[in-house]
């Protein structure tokens, strides 16, 4: 639909407003992180990067990052595997109670996460498992694996099953079909599912709060410091976390871009 000039200007201002609304808080945290002062206050009188130096040297920070990263990486890997097989079984096979099962496994997403976290903690206690970052992995999976499955399923549903049949008809066995047809075609879905899984796990607070036990993730620590005993490292670590997430997305995009370029050059050369 062609828009006239005043509509275009109105849309531009509207868009700008949304962007400012979304990013202004983040930008203020960014400024706070490079303020010399120990307490969050505006305007900033003196700038410094000393909190970054402190953060990088701190062993607490190292432990927090390591815990958060371990949980996120393991959750991502397991979620992607579950999502791949789950999505294929939804999209490709007819089985009894399939639609009911599809709805039931999505239910945890609709639970308030705090309730889910508490319920899981009670379960772990009942089973005699002492909560640690490993139980947090399980808790994250309960919530994240269904989301990852949903993302891959969208891709799997749009996948024409006759592609696999055609490959089989031309002599491909099940392993070859998986390697040559199914995996490459579901790859974009698997990459986005992996990204979502990582980011949701990395930033998760309510599930971690209940289930990490004595261990602590980055969001948990940030919350604790806000509630009691503010640390000037809060905005610094906040920004570092955002930058980390952003870099993960960039790395994933770069990998998928490289894979595609590689495939195209192979297509051109053989």
């Amino acid at each position: 639909m062609p828009a006239n000039k005043s509509t275009r200007i109105a849309l531009f201002i509207y868009g700008l407003f949304i962007i400012v609304f979304l990013y202004l808080p983040l930008v203020s945290v960014g400024f706070a992180s490079i303020s010399r002062a120990r307490y969050l206050s505006f305007p900033i009188k003196q700038y410094s990067t000393k909190w970054y130096t402190t953060a990088l040297e701190s062993s607490t920070v190292k432990d927090l990052l390591l815990t958060s990263l371990s949980i996120a990486v393991i959750v991502t890997l397991i979620s992607v595997v579950i999502a791949f097989f789950g999505a294929l079984s939804f999209a490709r096979y007819q089985w009894r109670y399939r639609t009911l099962f599809q709805k039931l496994i999505l239910l945890p997403i609709f639970f308030p996460q705090t309730v889910l976290g508490l319920a899981l903690l009670m379960w772990f206690n009942a089973l005699g498992i002492i909560p640690s970052w490993k139980t947090a992995v399980v808790a994250h999976l309960v919530w994240i694996a269904p989301i990852a499955t949903l993302i891959v399923a969208i891709r799997a549903y749009s996948f024409d099953p006759s592609l696999e049949e055609a490959a089989r008809d031309m002599g491909a066995d099940t392993g070859t079909i998986l390697r040559e047809i199914t995996l490459p075609l579901l790859m974009p879905g698997l990459v986005s599912a992996g990204l979502f899984a990582f980011l949701l796990s990395w930033g998760n607070f309510p599930l971690s709060l209940f289930t990490t036990g004595a261990d602590s993730t980055l969001p948990e620590w940030l919350y604790a410091k806000m509630v009691s005993g503010y640390s000037p490292l809060v905005p610094t670590l906040g920004i570092m976390s955002v930058v980390g997430s952003f870099m993960i997305i960039m790395i994933a995009l770069a990998i998928s871009w490289l894979l595609r370029a590689n495939r195209e050059s192979r297509a051109a050369s053989n």
Binding site: S162, E165, A166, R168, D169, M170, G171, A172, D173
Partner: peptide
């Protein structure tokens, strides 16, 4: 199907 010497245009 993968062992039959026939092929189909879908």
């Amino acid at each position: 199907a993968n062992l039959r010497p026939t092929c189909m245009v879908f």
